[in-house]
Nucleic acid binder design. Structure first.
Lengths: 299, 299
DNA sequence: CTGTGGTTTTTTATTGATAAAAGACCAAAC
DNA sequence: GTTTGGTCTTTTATCAATAAAAAACCACAG
């Protein structure tokens, strides 16, 4: 077999949902236009079109492309088939690692991971290479990968960098005018926090996603690709950590949301010192929460 | 063809140079001992041994392994054959990029790089993946890699992080006792700086290596894998930059060496504030030097 | 001469085959 | 009974073949 037809399926799906908005007989526009709109090559769009013509969804001959009938639900490919491979590995792998039942020192076999997650071996390899500088895994040349585990020292070092970056970003943020896009976005996030805190406890489950957005937005004020990059990886780790550690979840999230609000309030009305103080307090809580859930043992 | 026999050649070379210290008739020791000493598998050591037996360098039958004659120069494999692939790509690629005649926006073809540097395509791919988070290149999914170039904003962002990390490391260093290994190592580096400054101008060519060691040692005080990792990459970039930018080289190096000495003196005898000040001054000069050589134009 | 679609070429992603290197196993030697 | 070396198995690195996707090319309609 050669490469997967993922892009073709994804393009077909997106083309179909576009067609749902049209009435039968409507013109579809030129191939080049469709390709540009879908962000794919004309070759792939043509494959999708001929697939849809065969299925009787469109009439197609030369320049004349018309909707023949409304797309049905079973015309679509399943979402699972179009999900990016990288995303699937990342999710499966991080879930496995942060689940906690994988001991540090475990050797990772590329072929086995590839089989287990049903993804190409090259994609597994690529993921592991990308993940290595992050420090959780290590490659022994000519040998296998070794899991170094989520140790206390790892968590500590991660937080040291996080504190450095977020403090730096906050200082940059304080220097920005109140009308800047980032500060406007922060005001919107402030409103979302208030709405979440007013809602029922169950709604608190959506806090991790909000938390990730808040911190990424904060870091984006640094306008630094290295910091953005780190923030992305950290948000993955923290996100999966939240998913895993269910203890006192609602209470913990509520407290974190309130700490976010204190930072946001200080940014809006308070002094720079108060904002720095609020951020430091929040990061200290976050560090404490994370460290509590990391086992003392481990290499 | 399958994989290269690089490890075999390297093991053979190292075994040969070990044999040069022995007199003919001497026993070589067990296969397992040799394998452990050379950091390779017994399988590979056995291949090397049978190669050397065939060449008449040793007499080998069962447990009895003796040196038959002194290894000659032409018994060795050429150094070029044993150099790690990763190192070769890194050197060739970074040299090409930092040479400056490659315009940002240039597309990189994996197969072409593989041919040009005579390294396996997979190794090129691996190198590019590792290098991507560093921000110089970018992958368009299902398409090629794109060079983003060594732009002013890139250099600026790199230095922002560098300043953050080195300041943090310095604070950690100031808290260490005078007898700590890092401070001892710094005293040795201090002496090397003084020796270099006393020597002729030509000796200043070895400064870049000393500079890299100084900064890496400083960063190592942070005891943080993320910081160490960044330091490694930066030292590569700065190293290649030095190699490229020959203007006022000696003068520039001399100045930097003196700035290093000021930091080291402050660490030894001065106040914390003086040390911080000296570091800030040095980083400002370094930033200025780098920025001067980065063209204003570019994406 | 510009936009469009049919066609061909190039490049990338993926797989399976193959040899190097590592690692496991086991019997003989000390 | 521990060490050592011969042999076999597993895993990794590499290449070649193949199909998807992209990109280039070209002819023709308007």
């Amino acid at each position: 077999m050669a490469r997967d037809t993922k892009v073709f399926k994804d393009v077909t799906n997106r083309l179909l949902s576009h067609l749902q908005g049209l009435t039968p007989g409507a013109e579809l526009g030129s191939e080049a236009t469709l390709a540009a709109a879908l962000g794919a090559s004309r070759t792939t769009v043509r494959s999708a079109l001929s697939h849809m013509a065969q299925a009787g969804i469109i009439d197609w001959s030369g320049r004349d492309k018309r909707l023949a009938r409304q797309p049905r639900r079973d015309d679509f490919f399943s979402l699972d088939e179009t999900r990016p491979t990288a995303e699937r590995i990342e999710e499966a792998f991080l879930h496995w690692i942060l689940q906690g039942d994988v001991a540090p020192g475990t050797t990772l076999n590329e072929a086995e991971l590839s089989r287990r997650y049903d993804v190409p071996a090259a994609a597994v390899r690529e993921f592991l290479i990308r993940f290595e500088p992050f420090g959780l895994i290590e490659k022994r040349p000519n040998r296998h990968w070794v899991l170094k585990g989520f140790t206390r020292s790892f968590a500590q070092e991660m937080f040291d960098v996080r504190e450095m970056y977020e403090s730096h970003a906050l200082d940059r943020l304080l220097a920005l005018p109140a009308e800047s896009p980032i500060r406007q976005a922060l005001r919107e996030i402030d409103a979302e926090h208030r709405a979440l805190l007013k809602a029922e406890d169950a709604a608190m489950l959506s806090f991790p996603a909000l938390d990730a957005r808040f911190h990424r937005l904060l870091l984006s004020a640094a306008c630094n690709r290295f910091i953005d990059n780190f923030g992305q990886t950290i948000s993955i780790i923290v996100h999966y950590h939240y998913r895993w550690n269910k203890k006192d979840e609602t209470l913990r999230n509520r407290k974190a949301a309130e700490e976010h609000l204190r930072i946001l309030a200080a940014l809006e009305n308070g002094t720079a010192a108060e904002a720095r103080d609020a951020l430091a307090a929040h990061l200290a809580t976050a560090r404490d929460t994370l460290m509590r859930s990391v086992p003392w043992a481990g290499a």
